[in-house]
Every structure is written in C-alpha cells, then in structure tokens.
Design a protein around this nucleic acid. Structure first.
Length: 798
RNA sequence: GCGGAUGUGGCGGAAUUGGCAGACGCGCUAGACUUAGGAUCUAGUGAUUUUAUCGUGGGGGUUCAAGUCCCUUCAUCCGCACCA
C-alpha cells in the first residue's frame, strides 16, 4: 500500500518549486505546443470531464518532453460570461470577486491532479492586460470594415425586460420568470466571418483535424451553389430570390418571402390584407429560426393580396406568400417555390392548394416531391427540355446572365457573427459614437478600455447594457472631432477572448504586442489541440476566422492556428446520463483525488474507454486502476539481480504499443498493454532494476507522481520526467512462431503452431500434411485453399 | 427537422482495418491465506439442448471469410449560431 496523498503532494511541491515544466524561450530547440480548451471557471468547480482532456494532452506533453522537445503546455481562464454575471446579480457580489474565487478553486483542483502546465504563462481573459489585446483585435477588424452594425432580432423577455440567450428561452418562455419571449430588433455589432467562408473551407485541406470535425465545419459553413434570379412584380419593385435549383425555374408556381422582408413595407399601401400580414409577422417574432424551419411542422403563411410576381422565363403571373419557413438571414430572404421538386415547397403547396408543375421527369409529384438531381431529365421547361439537371443548371444560368435576369451565386449557410452583448461581464467594445463622425475607433493608445465599476450589473429596463446607466463613463469626447460623443455600451461575447488565447500563451507578458513576432514564429501553429465536440462549430470556426484575419494583417505567420485537432467524448454519470446537479449524478474530482489519489484518477479517466467516445463513470471501475498502481509499487520488492530474459520481447512490444497509442489517442489500450506487461512481470516473479526503469518510464506520463517516487527510491539520478523515452528494437518485437487457424469452409477446425517466417506455399504444405486436415478433407473435392500468412488457412471443399 | 456520431458478454471496452470475436479491467463463482477484510493470491467466467451449434441493435446482400464492405430499418447521444 503506498501513501498516494503524501507522495503526490511531495512531487507537486517539488515540480512547483523547481518550475520543472516551464517552457524555455530557447527558440533553437525543437518545439511542441500542446493545447487544451481553457475552462470557464464556473462556481461548481472542476467537472470530471475537464481532466479527461487535460490528462490526455498532459500525457502527450510529458512524452514529448522525454522525446527531447521544448514543450509548451499552458493553462488559463475563459472567465467572462453570463453565469458569473447572473451569480453576481443574485448574490450581490462583484463578478470580479466571483471570478477570482472560482479561479482560485479551479487552480487548486488542477494542481492536485499533477498536470505539467507551465503556470508562469497562466492567462485570464478578464485581466485588462489580456483584454487590451482582445479590444485591439476588434479595432483592427473595425478598421478593415469587418466589424459593422446591423439590425438583428434578439430574444426579449417582456417581463424581465432583458435580452435572453437562446438557452435561457425554454419553449418560447423565459427560463427565469416563465413570461412570453418575443423577438425584438436591436442594432448589433456584427463580424463579417462570411467574408472568410470559402477560405475556412479550403484551408481545412492543410490541417490534420479528425474527419468528423472537418465534416461538421464544412456543413456548418454550408456552401451551396445556385443562382440569384430577379422576378418582376405587379408593384414595380423586383423581387430577387436565391435558389440552388435554377433548373426548375419553369416549375415555380408561387413565391415566398420571409416575414421580415423589407418589400412588405414598400408595398404596404398596395396590400389589401395588410392587417392579416401584420398579425402573421408578429406571430413569427415568437418563434426561433429552429422552430420556423422544422420540416415536419405544419406550414403556415399568408398570401400577399394586391401584389403578384412574374416568372421571368415564361411571364406567368404567380402569387406571393409570406411564410416563416423562409428566413431573412439566408439567401435573399425570398424564394421561388417549386413544389414539384422541394420538400418544404411541396408541403406548403399541399396545405394551400397551389398548383404543382413537374419539370423534372421521374417520380409522381402528386404524392411526393421528386428531388433526385442525378437522374432526372427536364420537361415542361421550354428550351431546357431534354437536358439533365446538371446541364439545365448551366444552361439556365447562361441564359439568366445573358438576359440580365440574374446570375450564378455561391451561398453559405454561415451567418455573420453577432458580436454584441447587452451585458456587464464582458470586454467593453472600444468604439465611440459621435453625432458628426458616426462610430469612431478608440485610439489604440487608450487601450485597454477598462470595464468601469458599477453598482448594479442588472441590465437596464430598455435592454441596454448596465454600462448605459453610467453617464460619467458613457459621455466622452469624439477622438476624431473632439465634440461630445457616447461610448458604446455593449460588451463582447465570451467567444472573443477565447478566439486568440493560444497566441497569448506564446508570450503572455508582452506589453507592446499580443505576442512578439519571434514567439509567434517559434511556437505557432499549435501542434496539437484537443477539446470537446461541442466546440467544433462555433469556437473552432471563430478562432480560425480571427487567426486568418491576423494573418492577413501580418500579425501571425501561419494561415491556420491549429495543426492538429482532436476531440474527446463526454464523461457521463453512473446512470449513463449527462452529469448534472439536477440529475444528482455529479462526481467531484476532489473526492476521487482524496480517496484514490491523482494518479489513479488520471489512469482511470484514460482507461475508462475509447477517448473519442462518451463513457459512463464507474466507481467500481476505479478499483482496477488502484490495484494496478499498487501492484506497480510492489515491484520495488521484486527486483532480480539478473534478467530471466523472458520479459525482453514483452518489453519491446509494450514500448512500441504505448508509444504509438499515445500518438493516436488510444490511451485505454496503451494502459491495457502496460497491465499485460505487469501480469507478465508477476508471472516472471520479478524483474531487474533496468527492466523496471523502462516500465516506470512508460507509465510516467500516465501516473507521474508514483513513477517519480519509484525513480527516486530506486536511486536513479535527477527526475524521471527529465530523462528520455525508451526505445524499442523492431526485431525484438517479432515472434518466431505463430499460430495458424485451420478453417474448413470458413469454420475453425484446428490450430497449428508453425515458424513465423514460412512462405505461403510452405504454410499450405505444412497444414495439408497434418492428420487432422487429411481426415477433414477425406473424400471431398478441394475447390481452393486460401492462405493468409501469420493468420489462417481456409480450405474450401465440396 | 438539419448536420455529426454511436450501437459488441452482467458492465466499461478490445479486435494490427475483410482473416481465431470478447484483449485489458470491473463484476461474478470456487478455492487459498488468514486475530474475518469492501484486503491479497490462485483458478474459472459470451449463450445454449456442450462431440456441437448460435452469437457484434433488427432485416437483407457481397465474399472462401463480415463487428468491419453495400442496401435498408430501429434506437441512443452531441451541435444548431446570445450557455460555454
């Protein structure tokens, strides 16, 4: 039995005192930067899910140090955000204080797990020395025209009078008070991420991300090709639509515009049923985009009476509807509806008894829309008749462009990034609004623009940020003309600070730049970034966007921030459900460290299952890891003077297996191979000191405290973590003999041990000569014999 | 709904990518040692009607050979833009 508490505290102190894991700024050494998503320091403290990712890359970082790299494995705090603010409001404590306390607790918890973070580079997004540079990046975006203001719909609680996050809206009602939530239009700061859409897709080819991450990024960006087409209307104004199926233009039997479409206002005096339309628009404000676009929901809408559209290819007059399934945020906010060949148009047409004209042959469009684009041939489509869908697309676009009726268009589902929050606990946006000059950038010399102290963090009655009430702070002078002006009172979203934090780790104390050129060139790009799948679309995309922008303005030397991205699965509660307070299945890492030790906790989280998949926690399962470590510790009493030689092959195989498993995230099988080796050592009744040295070195990244202690007790010099990773001899990992399975018609009949170096012919000969096989094939015709060296021989008979 | 994934013993999971299904661990069973214990050690442990047959969510297919490839179907999980 080893005293894990004593050993772990001892080594944590030694590592701390010696700054053992500090990355050096010796830019001549080969470098390795390992990155994990920095946590949001919530009041609940560390979740057992955090150490899953942190342990994994800690293992990678520790192994890379043993491989001779100058390793940077940093940690920090993504500390701005809504929960802290809400907690502060409820408990009347300043968010700054809440954050400070939470960080202290998180840091204590992380230290107790023995991670090899370089704490000298700790960062905090709420530190003015940090957010100075977040604000600086925003100013550069603003100067390049990539930050702009736009009217956007927000969730508005009619009772609390605050803007709500989508998450705070539960089934159309406010999560806190249960009152109705409506969509309210507000002027918001936006960032033009759409300008980078194509590059965000293209450059995925240059990086090593796991496939599902790339797939989700691409799908989120949602590139589609099609055309924009102008329809004339009886009201005069043209109505422009975006369609991915311009080939079906002859099949358009009606049009649909979104409830927010500006033409409704333009046509107001011509619309005979304006009241009905207005009522529908109000209804639409109560729904989220998600609800509006659900395919299965019943289609609703109102026909615009008094204005009709004219199909540009056949001059047919068709009705225009307003319906919530068309979103203003995608395409042009208006569509041509081709019910014969689109699911949603078909459902709408059926609900409103609109004509369905088939223009692509195949399928029965009265019973279901025909959406196959591979096989169909155009019909009922004038000059397009007889063409395939692909040919028709090309032909119609040529026609539209020639006749100036429209043009080819690439569209992205990706929308610009809503960057304003009407909240206190975020980075102030460094903009001044002047009546004469408009929105003016704060001079860089005035950064950081500090978050002022306020008495109340509650949003104001009209939904403005709490900062709006601070007249002393708000009223300022225009940096441009010197006249009276007002500061922007919205703050930035939490995503801002986390979009560039990895760069700050490279040079965290720099006062003149977000990081020095030398540091950025040396450390960038991040060699390996691990995080949750839940950050695959937003955080990852936002930070890639900022990085590309910084590349464009010459701040960073690489196009992409992360060379490699992997993702871990969630750790679920014992009942297989997501851990949450309300479900009562939360496991506190502190309890595990106290009862079993940090090494056991680390080992268990790595052994729990496939790193990339979700896995339920098991209090029973931990015991296997405790036993393993205790049996390892007991090896100190099993030292042999001379080697039996029986462990050599197993040792070489294990070095190979553990080395490759760490690189490929297969920590569970790596540990399993160490367990097998330990079993072999016990079978051998001990091992030599040199053999034990290899064993504890392999285990060191997983269980750093125990192995460091054993290193010392064995009398080796210095610290284990500063030695080197063992090497294996490929020749010594290969078996001389192997077992061949003999199958008859694919069924296993017999096993045979033969030399491993036999050729196919020799194997077949050896197998066919055995008595069992002779008896087996007696009186049967051999159709063929399949020989897989090292594996099996399958005899096919009739 | 859209997008991404997953489904293998009582449980967590292995399976060199088409070649012995169930490595490793938990649990369980029996035994040993015991001033008896939720400790340690040893052996066993997919199922069944046990010379064998069946078995990787269900159904179908390709192949000498399928957990792995194809078609189809069901179930579960993650994300969906102001939670982070």
């Amino acid at each position: 039995m080893y005293n894990f508490t004593e050993i772990e505290q001892k080594w944590q102190k030694i590592w701390d005192d010696n700054q053992t894991f500090r990355a050096t700024d010796d830019f001549t050494k080969p470098k390795f930067m390992a990155l994990v998503e920095f946590p949001y320091p919530s009041g609940q403290g560390l979740h057992v899910g955090h150490p899953r990712s942190y342990t994994a890359l800690d293992i990678v970082a520790r192994k890379k140090r043993l491989d001779g790299y100058n390793v940077l494995y940093p940690m920090g705090w993504d500390a701005f955000g809504l929960p802290t603010e809400n907690f502060a409001i409820k408990n009347k404590i300043h968010p700054k204080t809440v954050t400070k306390n939470n960080i202290a607790n998180f840091k204590r918890q992380l230290k107790s797990l023995g991670f090899s973070f370089d704490w000298s580079r700790e960062i905090d997004t709420t530190d003015p020395n940090y957010y100075k540079w977040t604000q600086w990046i925003f100013l550069q975006l603003f100067k390049k025209g990539l930050a702009y203001k736009k009217e956007m719909a927000v969730n508005w609680c009619t009772s609390c009078k605050v803007v709500l996050a989508n998450e705070e809206v539960v089934q159309g009602a406010c999560e806190r008070c249960g009152s109705e939530v409506v969509r309210k239009v507000k002027s918001q700061w936006m960032l033009k991420i759409t300008e980078y859409a194509q590059r965000l897709i293209d450059d995925l080819d240059e990086v090593d991300y796991i496939d599902r991450v790339k797939a989700q990024q691409k799908n989120w960006i949602g590139r589609s090709t099609g055309a924009e087409v102008d329809f004339t209307t009886t009201a005069g104004e043209k109505l422009r639509v975006y369609t991915t199926r311009p080939d079906t233009l002859f099949g358009a039997t009606y049009m649909v515009i979104s409830p927010e479409h500006p033409n409704i206002e333009k046509w107001a005096d011509k619309l005979e049923n304006l009241d009905e339309i207005r009522a529908y628009q109000i209804d639409a404000t109560k729904k989220s985009d998600f609800e509006r676009t659900e395919l299965q929901k019943e289609k609703t809408g109102v026909e615009l009476k008094g204005v009709r559209a004219i199909n540009p290819v056949n001059q047919k007059e068709i009705p225009i509807f307003v319906s919530d399934y068309v979103l203003m945020s995608y395409g042009t906010g208006a569509i041509m509806a081709v019910p014969a060949h689109d699911e949603r148009d078909w459902a709408f047409a059926k609900a409103f008894n609109l004509p369905i004209i088939q223009v692509v042959a195949g399928g029965d469009v009265e019973t279901a829309p025909y959406t196959d684009v591979e096989e169909g041939i155009l019909e009922n489509s004038g000059f397009l008749n007889g063409l395939s869908v692909a040919e028709a697309k090309k032909a119609i676009i040529e026609y539209l462009e020639k006749e100036k009726l429209g043009e080819a268009k690439v569209n992205y589902k990706l929308r610009d990034w809503v960057f304003s929050r009407q909240r206190y606990w975020g980075e102030p946006i460094p903009i001044v609004h002047c009546e004469k000059c408009g929105a003016v950038a704060l001079p860089e010399s005035e950064l950081p623009l500090l978050l002022p102290e306020v008495d109340s963090y509650e949003p104001t009655d009209n939904g403005e940020s709490p900062l709006a009430n601070m007249t002393d702070w708000v009223n300022t002078t225009c940096p441009c003309c010197g006249g009276p002006a007002k500061r922007e009172t919205d703050t930035m979203p939490q995503w801002a600070g986390s979009s560039w934090y990895f760069l700050r780790y490279m040079d965290p104390h720099n006062n003149d730049a977000l990081a020095s050129k030398e540091a950025l060139e040396y450390w960038g790009p991040v060699d390996w970034y691990n995080g949750g799948m839940e950050h695959t679309t937003l955080h990852l995309l936002y930070s890639r966007f900022w990085h590309k922008f910084l590349y464009d303005i010459g701040v960073v030397p690489t196009k992409e921030p992360y060379a490699k991205r992997t993702s871990h699965g969630m750790i679920l509660g014992e009942n297989g459900e997501k851990m949450s307070k309300s479900r009562g299945n939360v496991v506190n890492p502190d309890d595990i460290v106290r009862d079993y030790g940090a090494d056991t906790m680390r080992l268990y989280e790595m052994f729990i299952g496939d790193f990339e998949k979700a896995a339920p926690w098991s209090q029973q399962g931990i015991k296997g890891c405790v036993r393993f470590l205790e049996r390892v510790y007991a090896l100190l009493d099993m030292i042999q003077e001379t080697s039996t030689g029986k462990l050599e092959k197993e040792l070489h195989k294990t070095i190979k297996k553990v080395s490759s498993d760490i690189e490929s995230l297969k920590f569970n099988t790596g540990i399993a191979s160490l367990m097998s080796l330990l079993n072999a050592i016990y079978d051998n009744r001990g091992l030599t000191k040199e053999e034990l040295k290899i064993f504890i070195t392999l285990l060191n990244p997983f269980a750093p405290h125990l192995t460091e202690e054993m290193w010392q007790l064995l009398g080796f010099d210095g610290m284990l973590n500063q030695t080197s990773w063992p090497k294996y001899d490929e020749a010594k990992t290969v078996d001389n003999e192997c077992e061949i399975v003999i199958q008859l018609n694919g069924k296993i009949k017999e096993k045979l041990v033969i030399a491993a170096n036999l050729s196919k012919e020799e194997i077949e000969k050896a197998v066919m000569e055995t008595d069992v096989v002779k008896a087996m094939i007696d009186g049967k015709t051999i159709v063929k014999v399949i020989v897989v060296p090292g594996k099996l021989v399958n005899i096919v008979v009739k």
